[in-house]
Write a protein that binds this DNA or RNA. Structure first.
Length: 108
DNA sequence: GATATGACGTCAT
DNA sequence: CATGACGCCATAT
């Protein structure tokens, strides 16, 4: 399992209608602090069936420039993601990556 | 190994 | 809110 797959798997965990930041994805994939690399991993996501559009910059801001960014916003709106001005409504559409840790917890 | 690149994140102005 | 600068790190050459 390489970096690529880890990142892509994390992105795949984002349900329709929800979004997450590059930093969150990196953290969820087990590579905190590699937000930059997440973007790199999504370069070919479009061809790999990865819901790349659900990954935004901090604060729900679209970082893709030009038409690509417009396209991303359109895709998200079609999924039900609401936008407040130029940013996605992270308050309601921000996905919270559940604790993937399978470690048992006795008392809670 | 060294250099260059990038869909980031944070701080300062 | 916009711009500039820096830190961070995997990949590509």
């Amino acid at each position: 399992m390489g970096y690529f797959e880890k990142i892509q798997r994390a992105v795949l965990r984002i349900p329709r209608g929800k979004v997450a930041s590059y930093g969150e994805v990196a953290r969820a994939a087990g590579y905190p602090g590699t937000a930059r690399q997440v973007a790199w991993a999504l370069r070919n996501a479009e061809a790999r069936g990865i819901p790349w559009q659900r990954v935004l910059g901090q604060g729900g801001r679209i970082l893709l420039p030009g038409a690509a960014g417009l396209h991303q916003r359109t895709l998200l709106e079609l999924e039900g993601v609401r936008f407040l001005g130029s940013r996605a409504d992270m308050r309601h559409c921000g996905y919270r990556f559940g604790p993937s840790r399978s470690k048992a917890q006795s008392t809670g």
